[in-house]
């Protein structure tokens, strides 16, 4: 579903190399401990491409988005955007320039619009902060355009309303309009449809696909839903307990998953087609605590194929060719 024609001509939109992020615990009882939210996370998002970051809650996918948006700074590892390694911001101009390139769409359409502001005062902020409008008339034109391209027209009707006067789907469209207002090159979408009513999810997803096509942005699409990831993205990376377990072209990974966790996720996902012929799950349990992650492979306590060596060392992300990578000793055989 993605368009990666000119990927070779441009540097990747985004590249993470062994990024680590820990959140130290502040309480005295847990002195010296930390939440291992991201460990050795590496991936490449091609310019104009789309990568789905799939994982259950607590897998570190939202932290990854926040680190890329630089709401938090990573502890170690490289973050490269449009071929430029990210460095600490020296001034506000640098910070603004970065934020103009990388934008986030949040999950909660209710929480991400300030209830005390009108849609106008919410939506004009990106233009004002980044100095994108040339006078009052231009700002008006841009506001209308921003709303109309997400399917909210007549724009004037929406501009004077407050968030609570809009439905969930309309609010999320306002959020997306705000994201695209700064003309970013990378959009990080954190479960943008999971809190919407089911019947309107596809409308928002299709609109995002159309916007991507028209604006040539790159998507990092964060979701817990494999089927949604398949619909939205050309590539997929599956995270578990802060680490990427498998990465590759979406169709390949879903059809022919290698990592036991990805297989488990696939067999657990609702799929009417498979119907009653479904095989029962071969593993149970839940994502481990990220404060004391298991030694070695983080999936080994639940893994039906675990071997003694899985407990000892964290497997490397092995290259299977064809853009696929798997963090599992099984893949090396």
């Amino acid at each position: 579903m993605s368009d990666e024609r000119d990927a070779a001509a441009r540097p990747p939109a985004l590249e993470l190399r062994s990024v680590v992020k820990r959140f130290p615990l502040r309480s005295l009882a847990a002195y010296g401990k930390a939440v291992h939210a991201m460990d050795d996370v590496s991936f490449v998002l091609e310019a104009g491409g789309s990568l789905a970051l799939v994982g259950e809650s607590g897998s570190g996918k939202t932290t990854t988005a926040s680190v890329i948006a630089r709401l938090y700074e990573r502890d170690s590892g490289d973050l490269v955007v449009d071929g430029e390694p990210a460095r600490p911001f020296r001034n506000r101009a640098e910070s603004l320039a970065y934020k103009k390139k990388v934008q986030l769409i949040f999950q909660d359409p209710f929480g991400s619009l300030n209830p005390t502001h009108t849609i106008r005062s919410i939506l004009e902020r990106p233009f004002l902060i980044h100095g994108l409008a040339d006078g009052r008339a231009d700002l008006e034109a841009r506001l209308s355009e921003a709303l109309e391209q997400v399917g909210l027209s007549p724009a004037a009707e929406y501009l004077r309303r407050f968030p609570h006067e809009l439905s969930g789907g309309q609010r999320q469209r306002v959020n997306i309009a705000r994201t695209f207002a700064v003309e970013p090159s990378i959009v990080l979408a954190d479960e943008p449809t999971s809190m919407l009513d089911v019947s309107i999810r596809m409308g928002v997803m299709n609109m995002m696909l159309d916007l991507k096509e028209r604006k040539g942005v790159s998507y990092l699409y964060i979701t817990h839903d494999l089927a949604g990831a398949r619909y939205m993205c050309g590539s997929i990376a599956v995270m578990y307990a802060g680490m990427i377990m498998e990465i590759g072209p979406t169709e390949d990974v879903i059809r022919d998953a290698v990592h036991p966790y990805v297989k488990l996720l696939k067999s657990a996902s609702p799929s009417p087609e498979s119907g009653l012929a479904r095989a029962p799950l071969d593993a149970s349990g839940e994502i481990p605590s990220l404060i004391d992650p298991p030694s070695g492979c983080r999936f080994h306590p639940r893994c039906p194929y675990a071997e003694p060596r899985c407990r000892e060392a964290v497997p490397e992300l092995a290259d299977l060719g064809g853009g696929r990578g798997v963090r599992c000793v099984l893949a090396l055989r």
């Binding site: 934008q103 986030l104 902020r125 902060i129």
Partner: peptide
């Protein structure tokens, strides 16, 4: 911790704006 404050920061708003225009009115 609300998302609209995080959005504001990710858009590049100044701290004073976040405090006085996003948080205070609420």
């Amino acid at each position: 911790g609300r998302d609209f404050v995080r959005v504001s920061r990710s858009l590049g708003e100044r701290t004073s704006f976040v405090v006085f225009r996003e948080i205070l009115p609420n």
